[in-house]
């Protein structure tokens, strides 16, 4: 079991002043990522981590490791290294990297670690898909890789029992839409949507309602709301929903919302091995946000 104990705001100056750290970071794709990696650069040991779903491999400092065997590999590379605190810089890391690192942590002997996340200052305006042609990029490598399970978080489901999908809601309707369309009612019976309200900034949540309202029209259950930047709030909500579902119900989880909500989803999945992950591996595009907003530090500990 792991738990999220606390969260507090932190500044880039405070990050720069850290010492003796072990930082897991990903490739920066926007301003906030660059600011954070620059701040952490001289604080201690830096390990670059990046997951490639096409070949199910994780690049750790340039070396390819399989999803199976990652824990042993990480144990080896930190053996004998000196550090006081571990940081996972989740702004530059994708959801799967955060998930796999937290899973490793849950199996390790380390007692606590910190997760850093920086909000953007501004998101680019969203595409009006019925009439807007301009913001669409005709590059097949953009968007997502499609829904593909991750070893350790996947489960063979019985054909006779259908599951409840809990989904944190993001800006793009196509993500949940594709999941439901792909499933076509075969394994998913109903969807419990969780919206990030209040959002980072006033009005940002409006778009996810508009985008998803029709997708949810047939299978959507009562919507739930958690603060978009609070993994503690989200984790409580996930536990609450699980508790209200009953023991025999199959639960699947699609973390399609904000990163803090996804961090809570990762913790929840690790603590509840019976719950299945549904994830579509979006390509992260730097141009989607600008600037550096609030920075959060979440403390996670092993019990």
């Amino acid at each position: 079991m792991i738990s999220i104990n606390d969260y507090k705001p932190i500044t880039t100056e405070e990050l720069t002043n850290l010492t003796n750290t072990l930082c897991f970071i990903g490739p920066p794709i926007d301003q906030r990522g660059e600011d954070l990696t620059a701040a952490l650069n001289n604080t201690g040991l830096i390990v670059q981590v990046s997951f490639q779903v096409k070949e199910y491999s994780i690049e750790v400092d340039g070396n390819k490791v399989g999803t199976v065997g990652l824990n042993g590999y990480l144990n080896n590379i930190i053996e004998g290294k000196k550090f006081d605190t571990i940081y996972i810089e989740s702004t530059t890391l994708g959801f799967v990297e955060v998930l796999l690192l937290l899973k490793w942590f849950s199996k390790s002997k380390i007692s606590t670690l910190n997760v850093i996340y920086a909000e953007p200052n501004k998101y680019k305006s969203r595409t009006n898909y019925m009439s807007d042609f301009g913001k669409h990029e005709f590059d097949l490598s953009t968007h997502t890789e499609g829904f593909k399970a991750i070893p350790g978080f996947a489960k063979a489901l019985s054909q006779s029992t259908k599951s409840i999908l809990i989904s944190s809601m993001g800006f793009e309707r196509s993500r949940l839409g594709q999941l439901l369309s792909l499933d076509d009612g075969a394994y998913i019976n109903s969807v419990v949507p969780i919206f990030g309200t209040p959002p980072y900034q006033t009005g940002w949540d409006k778009h996810s309602y508009f985008q998803n309202v029709e997708v949810l029209s047939s299978k959507g259950e009562k919507p739930q709301f958690v603060a978009a930047n609070s993994p503690i709030d989200m984790l409580e909500m996930l536990e609450y929903i699980k508790g209200s579902c009953g023991e025999d119900n199959e639960i699947t989880l699609a973390p399609l919302g904000t990163k803090p909500m996804s961090i809570a989803s990762a913790v929840f999945l690790i603590n509840n091995p019976k719950i299945t992950l549904k994830y579509d591996h979006p390509k992260r595009k730097g141009s989607r946000s600008t600037g550096l907003g609030k920075i959060h530090l979440y403390e996670i500990s092993r019990q």
Binding site: E145, G146, Q178
Partner: peptide, 19 residues
């Protein structure tokens, strides 16, 4: 037309093409 973007991995592109 709205649902076209749910059609497979390239659904979003297909929706633009339909439009």
């Amino acid at each position: 037309i709205e649902k076209v973007d749910e059609l497979g991995q390239h659904g979003e592109k297909l929706r633009f093409i339909v439009n």
